[in-house]
Design a protein around this nucleic acid. Sequence first.
DNA 1: GGCTAGTTTGAACGGTCGTTCAAAAACTGA
DNA 2: TCAGTTTTTGAACGACCGTTCAAACTAGCC
Lengths: 208, 208
Amino acid sequence: MADGRVPNTPSPHIREKRRRRRAEILHAALQAFRENGYHTTTLDDIAERLGVRKTALYHYFPDKESILYECHRESLGEIARMIEEAETCCERPAEKLAYLIREHVRVMTETLEGSPLAFEVPALSPERRAEIIAARDRYERVLRDLVLEGIRGGEFQRVDPKIAVFAILGAINWIARWYRPEGAIHADELGSEFADYLVGGLMCRQPR
Amino acid sequence: MADGRVPNTPSPHIREKRRRRRAEILHAALQAFRENGYHTTTLDDIAERLGVRKTALYHYFPDKESILYECHRESLGEIARMIEEAETCCERPAEKLAYLIREHVRVMTETLEGSPLAFEVPALSPERRAEIIAARDRYERVLRDLVLEGIRGGEFQRVDPKIAVFAILGAINWIARWYRPEGAIHADELGSEFADYLVGGLMCRQPR
DNA sequence: GGCTAGTTTGAACGGTCGTTCAAAAACTGA
DNA sequence: TCAGTTTTTGAACGACCGTTCAAACTAGCC
């Protein structure tokens, strides 16, 4: 018993299988959160979508909150990726901003399938909430700097960047409250309309 | 005992006192909902703010959900009043829309003190939820018609009215997520900036 | 001052739901 | 096929919290 054996590191196949199962759980949870919100979805709800008992979930996540937390981390990862891409693919602030809006809308509709994740931050423990909020703040700062840059360059009107960015994020996050994947409004059309509207509202009225 | 006496109708003074107490409870509840959200605030939380035990609340409301429901009704009442005023005080669609946005922002910051009421609709029972959603839909329709009118009159760009209105309401409702009464951003400045930005984004770029 | 109606309280109940745990089942790899 | 590991299960616990209720307290009113 007291052999010096290190716990076996699992085989790649097992590892991969587990990773996929975790992703499945997160996906089921996200759907449940979308339909009922975090607090009213029970672990049974999530488990039922996977054809399994709720106790099985504990093999993958230590508690319910961790499931929510991982959902947040994933979507914030996408946002971060999005920001990097905006740097390389666009030049002017207006273009970058439009790109970020379109991509954020895409994340909302595709990855999250309209799940109101951003609404559930208060459900996290203080430490995790702080982490998620910090990441969100970094994102907001990028957007504010973009607006500021646009104003300084004479492209944008002299708005309060903070207020403008809150308006933009509000419009985007609110998507979770009405968007339905099977609905009439098409996702990429939505992204373009939002980008036109929200960037257009910033542009100076009389060009040059 | 079996005298034919009808249960006394309470005196005006008593009636008024009770009305005020109900309002106090709703106010305390609204603050609690703002800080913790509906599901995580307990009746104890609300009662504690009033220096009273939770069971006292049952003298005024039959259950927790009814408290949330009355909060919704009150704020929807304000919205309805706001719509009527917009009819009489403004002419052109752009003006009406700007007026409604400013007023809605005022309701969000003053009456609700930033409480994210609009986020808590799913917590209501099906019937009540339906009622609140119906009222909200009527409001959205007013806004959509306004946008449509603006487009037809050549004032606004040819956007999808549905999408534009969702963006506007998202921006406004999101205020509850970041606005703090004691914060740096002043409430009426906020309303004006929102109106300028969100109506401006709809206007045709090259006026005549 | 005393009767009545209005208000608050403390104790307790009961349901829901997250969580624990030991045992069973299914799967992996030789 | 079989030992070892991973995954799932069922039963049960326990905490939290909305709710009930009878009793105590308070305020209005003649």
